[in-house]
Design a protein around this nucleic acid. Structure first.
Lengths: 200, 200
DNA sequence: ACTCACAACTGATCGCAGTCAGATAATATT
DNA sequence: AATATTATCTGACTGCGATCAGTTGTGAGT
């Protein structure tokens, strides 16, 4: 007797398997060689699918990177949020969130910068792009919540400052001048800027 | 008798003429159709030069856009700086600089966003890119000077806040969510953020 | 079991940015 | 003035991301 009939048909399962293979292939190749040194053909070959099929699962190469990296950023955010709970100071708590995100972003600098580029300049209608934007929103919400620990900051200002902090993060991670910097150096730079916009 | 011998030889003059033709051709085509809808081939044809020659004058298409647009931004900055002199309030003075720059950036939205993308992610070794970065530095210096009108802001903090303001501008102009917004709406958004980071 | 409709897949093909080996033109040397 | 040297130019070519007309696989209808 065969196993109980699957709720989902063969189609769905095939699709899921292909998506998994694509994700695995792209993930490995990007991590090893960097997004610019990997061709979509290589990814398709490694995932054992046709060239065109790849673009049914991600509209373009940038989306492919978002697909691969989103989950890593989501983890970094969860980790940072948890750490921030344990930290009393506002500035330190905000930095507790930023730390893991910057670390994640800098694991492979080219990929990290391309991820940011794609987030700001890519097509927001695409699903993986939406997910990435949602992570930014969540990050800003976490910032805003922390900022409101300070009695002098009202909800609206907190949201605005959170958005500013997000912009600061983006530029510090993306800027060409920072390519040579270590994670800690970048964190110092960000800390200095966020400190400056907190009430004195 | 021929005119007095040129200080510069024929080579230099030819080069300058070609650069002028390239700039004019690219400028017109970009303005009319947008950078994405223009091929480098079209630019080369219109400038009456070979395909390869184009890339002796600008390393890539992005550099070509910087070459064409830098002067416009430089003008906007000069205009904004002059306007800021006449404005008493710190926030208003900062906005007086930002106004013309945003207007310049939004004259053709796609080109404006591509310009920003190129500035952050392009090759900073290239000459036109360096010039663009220099404009950012000048803008931040102007911000810092204005911020120091406020006695509570010391020089170091002014420089830091100027950098933050610059990041805010970048994100507001580049963000996909803002594509549909008017210049005034974007300026309002920026104003709100800059106000939030000024001492209250 | 067979057929039909449509979702999913495929790789040959396209358009474009950017390259490079060879051609050409400007200056330096004799 | 002839020749050598070197700067500049050129377009055929390459490699890549992305497309799309045609094929294949899946499941619904009879």
């Amino acid at each position: 007797m065969p196993t109980a009939p699957q709720r989902v048909g063969r189609r769905e399962r095939n699709k899921q398997e292909k998506l998994d293979r694509i994700t695995a292939a792209a993930s490995e190749l990007f991590a090893e060689h960097g997004v610019d040194e990997v061709t979509t053909q290589q990814i398709a070959d490694k995932a054992d699918i046709g060239t065109g099929t790849l673009f049914l699962y991600a509209k373009n190469k940038g989306e492919l990177l978002l697909l691969v990296q989103n989950s890593t950023y989501a983890e970094a955010l969860v980790e940072g949020k948890a750490a921030a709970e344990e930290v009393p100071g506002v500035l330190d708590a905000v930095m507790a969130i930023i730390g893991p995100v910057v670390a994640c972003n800098r694991k492979q600098i080219d990929n990290g910068r391309t991820y940011l580029r794609e987030m700001v300049f890519g097509d927001p209608a695409e699903p993986h792009h939406r997910e990435a934007l949602s992570l930014t929103v969540q990050t800003e919400e976490a910032f805003a919540a922390i900022l409101q620990r300070d009695q002098r900051i009202d909800a609206e200002t907190a949201a605005t400052l959170a958005h500013v902090a997000s912009a600061v993060m983006f530029i510090s991670m993306a800027a060409t001048v920072n390519i040579g910097r270590t994670v800690d150096e970048i964190l110092d730079e960000i800390r200095g800027q966020i400190q400056a916009l907190l009430p004195r």
